[in-house]
Nucleic acid binder design. Structure first.
Length: 564
RNA sequence: UCCGGGGUCGUUCAAUGGUAGGACAGCGGGUUUUGGUCCCGCAUAUAGGGGUUCGAGCCCUCUCCCCGGAACCA
């Protein structure tokens, strides 16, 4: 472990064993990179970061931090048609939100000139050539799995001819798709990546940073390892699908006069979650189709959405540390993430009472006009959070769910004749109820026991339920956005191939409710617990809109499920 | 079809030739002024065959299954 002080948001979960950590430690012991550790987080600026990136960020930055090295944010901006500046700032902002310092971002596009020079070097040393066949032809010549490729008729152009053509490619006089630069590797290789891969393509496109300076753009494979080498990266950590690219990563590096040590690529499994999609394309489609309201819609797994929804950074980081790093393709249950969220919020969130589906409860024997001031603890898990006062005047809103005229089995709450505790106030006993023309309960009548003030009976009698309430005379309005999972299937799209077939209708429901007066003091972005309902984050834009971060564990729901 | 990477409780991560363990989920119980939290307990796993070894989840071998790979995407 590093002996630098932990940042405020550092996980408190003990560092678990994982193979990347072991590998870096072994490198340090053997002096592979002179004890140096440098990693990078290399997103393409073509979308917002999501929970899957959070894991990558935690691994990339975390490993560097742990071994006293550095991790830099580098934008892999080699494809001008998909990338936008809009995302650059947002990505750096999200990294910072996670509690890591990305520093001044780096860009692969800053290395275009060096890359170009190295490409000429490969041409001169006989390891690259210009091909002017079309992409279909090249594709066919590549062969297939178990079938060797055949060499391009242009594979053995002279160095001079290659150089001249390559310079014309750069000059802009040649049209898109007419020529490519290819590595001269091995058309018979079992690994298709080594069958003379494309290094450069011509694109007359405006680049978000280099503008119209280039028409020649490097491919990912040609840019990535070289960028790592230029920056002095030692451990290039990436996801599993690049496994078969590693041979090419190494091939390029071995054929170049590098300024320092040759970086090494190591692959690990990306984070997948049940009931969630993380592909940028699908996320974008959800937005474009209007299924959700934007990149920060709390139903999305984007970091912007999770932030708005009230997910604490520390919980996200604890989760990422806890799940570890492995090479197994896996999909974690979203319940585990939610457990980390609750675990954190249970310790930190202040308790408040809010009623989201109000029905009126009237205490018939309450002294006319009398108001009791009742003290409630802000957080039973943290006495330092102190107390607050709520007022009680014998007429309150209670949750529709907390009264049943005909109780199901094991129902502990209010029913005709039953006695419950109004949190912090009194025991009340149900004496009757009123319904409207459709049979819906509109009002519940009770009597209270004055001896139970504060919620304890001097005679020692117990109640089986405590319910929350809001004084009708002191209520403030609250809007609560309740979110269910966006998808109804653990693996969206598994059934039909299209995740959109598994979209759950009504994944967002907004309720207009009431809350105790103290809710008005909650700051934008702050998360509080609505007692017995869940954790809710006040929308950053203010007003009185709250997003449900996550519900409380609901044993009653399990009971109902079991008795069904 | 060829190459590569994987396969341990329901899920996921450990165990690095020496008692298969944790967490979440589930189930049961206790505490409780949140059917929350907390506490205690229960059940469930080394894909299969052969081999090496005193001893194998781990090493060898064969088989099976899953994932990735033939963009001028990353």
């Amino acid at each position: 472990m590093s002996d630098t002080p932990s940042p405020a948001n550092a996980p408190d979960t003990p560092a678990a064993a994982n193979f990347v950590r072991d590998l870096v430690r072994a490198d340090n012991q053997q002096g592979t990179f002179g004890g140096r550790v440098q990693t990078r987080f290399p997103p393409e600026p073509n979308g917002y970061l999501h929970i899957g990136h959070a894991k990558a960020i935690c691994v990339d930055f975390g490993i560097a931090e742990e071994f006293g090295g550095v991790c830099k944010l580098r934008f892999d901006d080699t494809n001008p048609v998909t990338e936008e500046t809009e995302y650059v700032d947002a990505i750096a902002d999200d990294v910072r939100w996670l509690g890591f310092e990305p520093g001044e971002p780096l860009y692969a596009s800053d290395y275009f000139e060096q890359l170009y020079l190295w490409a000429e070097h490969l041409i001169i040393t006989g390891f690259a050539y210009v091909d002017d066949q079309d992409s279909d032809t090249i594709s066919v010549q590549r062969g297939g799995y178990g079938k060797p490729g055949i060499e391009s008729p242009h594979r053995n152009r002279s160095v001079d001819e290659n150089l001249a053509l390559f310079r014309r490619m750069r000059s802009g006089e040649l049209p898109d798709g007419s020529h490519v630069l290819r590595a001269k590797a091995d058309m018979q290789h079992d690994n298709m990546q080594l069958r003379d891969p494309i290094m450069y393509r011509i694109r007359h496109e405006h680049h978000h940073r280099t503008g119209d300076q280039w028409v020649l753009y490097p491919t990912y494979d040609w840019a990535h390892g070289q960028s790592d080498a230029i920056e002095g990266v030692t451990h290039s950590l990436c996801s599993l699908e690049f496994d078969s690219h590693r041979a090419l990563y190494d091939w390029y590096l071995e054929h170049l006069p590098l300024p320092g040590d040759q970086p090494r690529q190591t692959e690990f499994a990306r984070l997948e979650l049940t009931y969630t999609v993380t592909s940028k394309r699908k996320l974008r489609q959800l937005i474009d189709d209007g299924v959700v309201e934007g990149w920060d819609d709390p139903r999305l797994p984007t970091l912007r959405a999770l932030r708005r929804r009230g997910y604490p950074v520390s919980a996200i980081r604890n989760f990422c540390e806890f799940i570890g790093v492995a090479k197994t393709n896996s999909r974690h249950e979203i319940e585990l993430l939610e457990w980390f969220i609750r675990n954190e919020l249970n310790r930190t969130a202040l308790r408040r009472m809010a009623v989201l589906q109000p029905i009126k409860l009237v205490v018939s024997n309450w002294p006319q006009g009398h108001v009791e001031r009742i003290e409630l603890v802000n957080n039973p898990e943290n006495p330092a959070d102190g107390v607050r006062t709520v007022e009680f005047n014998g007429e309150v809103w209670i949750e529709d769910d907390d009264f049943k005229a005909e109780p199901p089995p094991k129902y502990f709450r209010l029913t005709p004749g039953s006695e419950v505790r109004l949190r912090g106030a009194f025991f009340v006993k149900c004496t009757g109820f009123t319904t409207d023309a459709d049979g819906n309960v509109t009002e519940v009548q009770c009597t209270y026991d004055p001896a139970t003030r504060g919620g304890n009976a001097p005679d020692g009698r117990k109640v089986k339920a405590t319910i929350h309430w809001v004084s009708t005379a002191h209520a403030v309005p609250v809007q609560a956005a309740l979110y269910e999972r966006l998808f109804a299937a653990e693996v969206p799209g598994e059934r039909t191939g299209d995740p959109f077939d598994d979209i759950r209708p009504n994944s967002k429901v907004v309720r207009a409710g009431v809350a105790e007066a103290a809710l008005g003091e909650v700051a934008p972005g702050q998360v509080v617990q609505f007692e017995r309902l869940g954790y809710f984050a006040k929308d950053p834009a203010g007003d009185n809109l709250f997003h449900r971060t996550v519900g409380l564990k609901d044993e009653w729901a399990n009971v109902q499920k079991r008795t069904k």
